[in-house]
Design a protein around this nucleic acid. Structure first.
Lengths: 212, 212
DNA sequence: CCGAATCTATATCCGCCGGTGTAGACGCGT
DNA sequence: ACGCGTCTACACCGGCGGATATAGATTCGG
């Protein structure tokens, strides 16, 4: 039995092109071709396809919006994103939403066919450059902006780290063998440098800047 | 001019095998073959190769140890990891340390050759399955242990999220159109459920559990 | 050698936070 | 109908956190 596909793309030309393409492969069967998000969701719910080939950028509901809805419904099928270009954060979100494949529109048609068969077979297939770049983005985000610790003195950095561990002023004072008042002074100066209000904001800010 | 290589592998057989392999390619030139971490670092420092082909698992200093040292020295060359198997966290660390390629030992020799040329050309080349898996690991780590939010009521979750943004009790009360006292009660209950002391610990704990 | 930056300390004041107790309203399942 | 969980509210109090002012010690660079 053939692989049952639902297509979604808001460009009729692309949509028909894809249908034509898939007609030439006997193991692929297009059961629905949708031009917007709502009808895509409807089609997936009722037809239960094996694979959903979804345009990432669609007017109105984007492909990610559609995925968000469908991912909450424990659908049995798998999703492949088809797109002209992606931002790294879109890749990240798509993978979190369970997308099993991402194919660029400028890739060879064979690439898409190959991707569909692999995804149907349980594999995950994403263009190498895309994963690599997105991967690096995530890593960067983790260890990002090491700099910008800027004008913090060593002592202040030390204290920020301790605050970020959840220690209270008294504990910090004891551990550094200084008075609690001094800790407060340091913190006060730090707050000004980062223009934050309170230790919680400081910790959040410090996390953004990667000094934790 | 050929691509200058330094090889590092603590198995002599593999090392010689690689040398033999590269001899057949005129555009590749092995300038050093090292059997341990120390001599590898020394070779890279003095010979300044274009590419370092490095075994991940070596007795004594591991490949990652070597990378750690070299990455602190702003070396001009690029590194490719050659390994029988990798754990996801090793992939993550390798990429953070600036490794430009990872090739499995059971891959076809052509794969390694291809990888070397691409990396020398500025590309990043990592076996698809490896990146994909490691990528998912990082994502999982980010959105990990979604569960274990356990017995938190919807309202409580809502408040935790707001606290995690750095909002103070008064602001939360206003935004939820409830009294500040009620916010405190909710927080009190949450503190007990998580057995934490204070909003800062709560936020840190919530971040661990991935509910932010 | 003098000034600037840093780390230290002390002291006061106020506000927010968190603990504790009490209690009413609503919804849900038995 | 009753109990249970949840969300809500108010009040009181102790304590930590943060702002502010003042000031001595040290180190470092001009």
């Amino acid at each position: 039995m053939p692989i049952r596909l639902v297509l979604a793309d808001d460009h009729p030309i692309v949509l028909h092109g894809l249908q034509r393409l898939f007609e030439r492969y006997p193991d692929l069967s297009v059961v629905a071709a949708c031009a917007d998000g709502a009808s895509t969701i409807e089609a997936v719910r009722t037809l239960r396809p094996d694979i959903l080939v979804l345009d990432l950028r669609m007017t109105g509901q984007s492909g990610l919006d559609v995925l968000r809805v469908l991912s909450r419904e424990r659908l049995p099928g798998r999703a492949i994103l088809l797109t002209a270009a992606v931002r790294d954060d879109e890749v990240v979100e798509a993978m979190q939403l369970g997308a099993m494949g991402i194919v660029l529109k400028d890739a060879a048609p064979d690439t898409l066919i190959d991707c569909i068969r692999r995804v149907h077979n349980g594999e995950q297939w994403i263009e190498r450059e895309i994963v690599t770049r997105a991967f690096k983005t995530v890593l960067d985000r983790e260890s990002a902006s090491m700099e910008a610790e800027a004008t913090l003195t060593p002592r202040e950095i030390e204290i920020v780290r301790m605050v970020a561990k959840g220690l209270r002023n008294k504990a910090i004072a004891e551990q550094l063998a200084i008075s609690e008042g001094t800790v407060k002074v340091h913190l006060h100066n730090i707050y000004q440098k980062f223009s934050v209000d309170g230790r919680l904001e400081l910790v959040l800010c410090a996390q953004d800047r990667g000094l934790v």
